[in-house]
Every structure is written in C-alpha cells, then in structure tokens.
Amino acid sequence: EESVKIVRLVKNKEPLGATIRRDEHSGAVVVARIMRGGAADRSGLVHVGDELREVNGIAVLHKRPDEISQILAQSQGSITLKIIPATQE
C-alpha cells in the first residue's frame, strides 16, 4: 500500500527549488534534485526520489516534465503537492 502524502508549500515569486525527472523504469515523475534554500528545501517535506502525483489537484502522470515544471513555475502562494515518499532504505 502506497502512503500518499499531501504537502502544502508556500512559494512567493521564488522558484520551488526542486527539479523533476521521469523514471525510465516505472514512468513515475520523481524529484531529481532539491536546491538548498529553495521553498522545497526550507519546508523539509519534499525529498529526492519522492514520486510526484499531483500539483494543485492536477494529475501529472501523463504530463511531460517540462509541462509539470511550467505548472510549478506559474503557481504562486500555496502549492499543494500529492507525493508518494521515496522508500527509506
């Protein structure tokens, strides 16, 4: 059973501070990098390897990473992410 986590981040004009990529094996959209000091890093709630399912209620599974980045870039104020946390080894 996948544990889905709802994360709310507050982002002003600054970038979210995370990059995403598509996992070639599973097809999932995952967090590739977290930039120090960005909104994602400061929240402490988003981690490399987390699978991104939704951004502000928009399912991202069938979107290209550049489309998802665009949605994230255009979002201001509160951003709600639905993520499946990376499995902690």
Score class of each variant (00 low, 15 high):
30 V>D: 03
77 G>A: 08
33 R>V: 05
43 S>Q: 05
29 V>I: 13
38 G>W: 02
59 A>P: 14
84 I>W: 06
54 E>A: 09
38 G>L: 06
50 D>H: 01
83 I>E: 05
88 Q>P: 12
51 E>A: 05
80 T>L: 08
50 D>S: 00
82 K>N: 07
62 H>L: 06
68 I>V: 11
71 I>F: 07
88 Q>K: 13
71 I>L: 13
49 G>F: 00
71 I>Y: 08
34 I>S: 01
54 E>F: 02
13 K>D: 14
63 K>S: 07
17 G>A: 15
18 A>P: 00
31 V>H: 00
70 Q>D: 12
46 V>A: 00
26 S>K: 08
85 P>W: 02
72 L>Q: 02
57 G>P: 00
16 L>I: 13
16 L>N: 01
33 R>L: 03
34 I>H: 01
89 E>S: 14
71 I>C: 07
44 G>W: 01
54 E>P: 00
44 G>V: 00
51 E>F: 05
88 Q>F: 08
25 H>Q: 13
82 K>L: 01
60 V>A: 06
37 G>Y: 05
29 V>L: 14
59 A>V: 09
66 D>C: 10
39 A>H: 11
80 T>I: 11
42 R>N: 07
80 T>F: 07
9 L>P: 04
55 V>N: 02
77 G>V: 05
49 G>N: 06
56 N>V: 00
62 H>M: 07
63 K>G: 02
35 M>H: 15
64 R>W: 06
26 S>N: 10
12 N>G: 15
51 E>W: 04
50 D>Q: 02
78 S>W: 10
28 A>E: 06
13 K>C: 09
32 A>R: 09
86 A>Y: 11
13 K>L: 11
38 G>S: 13
53 R>S: 06
86 A>P: 06
6 I>L: 08
41 D>C: 07
86 A>G: 13
28 A>S: 11
64 R>K: 14
78 S>D: 14
28 A>V: 07
53 R>W: 05
27 G>M: 03
80 T>V: 10
45 L>F: 06
39 A>W: 09
12 N>Q: 09
43 S>G: 04
5 K>M: 09
47 H>A: 08
55 V>M: 03
56 N>I: 01
42 R>K: 13
59 A>T: 13
22 R>Q: 10
36 R>W: 02
4 V>Q: 13
20 I>P: 00
76 Q>E: 15
58 I>A: 07
25 H>W: 10
42 R>A: 08
20 I>N: 01
5 K>T: 15
81 L>K: 05
26 S>A: 05
70 Q>S: 12
56 N>F: 01
55 V>C: 03
